[in-house]
Design a protein around this nucleic acid. Structure first.
Lengths: 192, 192
DNA sequence: TGTACTACCTAACGTTCGTTAGGCAAAGGA
DNA sequence: TCCTTTGCCTAACGAACGTTAGGTAGTACA
């Protein structure tokens, strides 16, 4: 606890990087230990086991998304604006946690049954929140689409892939990316 | 060779399912053998090693995408129509190979350096082909967007996520999904 | 009927895995 | 100055890993 960040936080950070780069199953505790600069056995002084690392990463990000959802649900406004705000919040979570986002999206299935079920429930709740916005837009007469599920899942996948190409040192700020994406999703490619 | 499908094809099929469900690294040769109904050692009569399975799955699908690309590039038509056709072809490849698509999208990084480099090159070529279409649309004055990269990568991610939710036994045909998605990507959610 | 081949088996190899036990040296409070 | 705690170490555990060697039935063809 005497360092700038605790050893535990440091281990989780390095684990996040490795799980992203190599995948959870292909990352050994010895890999992780080496990257941190200690022996594998020493890691167990700071964390319970390997899965606790994955669980911590996945649920930290799930909580971040749920916080964004909770805050959005306090506001009432027209669906197009609501959706734009929701996209902004989502993009902000991802761009602030690029490695963790990749782990969150791809490695959650390695959780054991109990946390897995909880994780899936959280994700479902988040999907439903986006579905509600899109549904509201249709009722307001502002949105049109044929299939709700396709609309939301395509939206989500477009948002979620950001971690794959977003470079924090690049020219686009998170806000610009959010702006760009919501424009794309609301108006499509076609020039008016 | 006396069966309906050769043992090799069967093994690759089962491997595709398992790699999708559990991930490449978390799928053992003994898992695979059990699912096929033989002993782990026996698999090596039919395939060189574990990575050859992954390689085969990834490149078979890469080839399918490249075939679609090649066929598209023979045609000349306005960009909006071109994009719609490209989306249709892409959706067709994915819906015809749901498990393989998931493996293709998530497990390619476990390839060893040489096939990995080839794989990445193929994917890059495919991305460029979509970029050209979108670029052409802008030059024709038919498309508008701020950032080419974001447009194409969001497009691709929307298309690629299909394997996650598409159910062959569901109510939507591959053609309907393609239609639905190209409409979404061209026109957005906003009602005109 | 004899022979080559196919398709699988058992057994085992060396390696790596996640994890635990037990110890030791430095630091900090009494 | 003694004692407890902290933070890491070495050593080792049993299990699982990918893969190879060698054998043995059953089949197909001469």
């Amino acid at each position: 606890m005497s360092e700038i960040v605790s050893r535990k936080v440091q281990i989780e950070g390095v684990a996040t990087e490795l799980f992203r780069k190599k995948g959870y199953a292909a990352t050994s505790m010895r890999d992780l230990a080496q990257a941190v600069g200690m022996e594998a056995a020493s890691i167990y002084s700071h964390i319970k086991n390997k899965e606790a690392l994955l669980s911590s990463i996945c649920f930290r990000l799930a909580d971040a998304f749920m916080d964004a959802k909770k805050e959005m649900e306090l506001q009432t406004m027209p669906a197009p604006l609501l959706l734009q705000k929701a996209i902004e919040a989502h993009v902000r979570v991802i761009t602030n946690n690029l490695d963790a986002s990749a782990v969150f999206l791809h490695e959650w299935r390695h959780l054991s049954p109990e946390p897995l079920a909880e994780f899936i429930a959280l994700r479902k709740a988040y999907e439903n929140y986006l579905i509600r916005i899109i549904h509201q837009g249709k009722e307001e007469g502002k949105f049109q689409f044929e299939d709700e599920k396709i609309a939301v899942l395509s939206l989500l996948s477009g948002l979620n892939w950001i971690y794959d190409w977003y470079k924090p040192e690049g020219k686009l700020s998170p806000e610009q990316v959010a702006q760009n994406l919501s424009n794309l999703l609301l108006n499509g490619l076609t020039k008016k």
